[in-house]
Design a protein around this nucleic acid. Structure first.
Lengths: 109, 109
DNA sequence: CAGATATATACCGTCAAGGGAATGTAGCGT
DNA sequence: ACGCTACATTCCCTTGACGGTATATATCTG
């Protein structure tokens, strides 16, 4: 299975995630809003699902895809040790980032 | 030029960044600490430099590589709109922890 | 200048991910 | 049962990134 950053490396996948911020979407809706072919959307949705970025809920023939939080916390946790590097440089991000020193660290050494 | 996430997709590059958190490093030091061949380290350092992740300072034959903040702020900015998704998640996690603290401990799933 | 050190670059073979087109599958309405 | 809708999967082909090896470049030392 791909790592979080490998998943995010593909623009099409980031666009799907961006759309899903607004709430659950069906495959057809994503196809229409993205202008990408349906098989490709389905393929990337599978990748996103297997990586834990989205979950699916079946309703008749429709599949509703929805964001899941875990991979995003993983990115945030990875980013955290680098925070001091830019915190002095640019403080436009809120201080709320400190709030999530809770989740387990990852294999990145 | 590669995007930020394409850069981070490669484990070797993340390891380089991780080492550079401790301060500037020469190529030789990175080679030794990573156990990767010198040409590969140099190659990835070039990629990191072109993407703005690191800067170089020459000193005789040595090149000192150092982290730069901008790409990290880029990741943080990308992450920001997704924050609410996992803040809810953390809330639920907190509730569960509270429940666990209040109730007698159980078997772990 | 010769040789050694430190790093960068060029070239090459491999391999896997991505896109496209076609096809498969499941549930719905009539 | 039939066709339609919504989506998933398969197959093929291409492309490009990665790692490895060899080589080039620059700087120091003697």
């Amino acid at each position: 299975m791909l790592t979080v950053f490998e998943i995010l490396a593909l623009p099409a996948r980031r666009e799907i995630l961006s759309l899903l911020r607004q709430g659950p979407r069906s495959v057809g809706e994503l196809v229409e809003e993205l202008g990408i072919s349906q098989p490709i959307v389905s393929k990337q949705l599978r990748v996103l699902r297997e990586a834990g970025f989205v979950s699916v809920r079946a309703e008749a023939q429709r599949r509703w895809y929805e964001l899941r939080p875990e991979p995003f916390t993983e990115v945030a946790n990875w980013l955290e040790p680098y925070r001091w590097i830019w915190s002095e440089h640019l403080d436009r991000l809120g201080d709320q980032l400190d709030a999530l020193a809770a989740a387990p660290p990852e294999e990145d050494r």
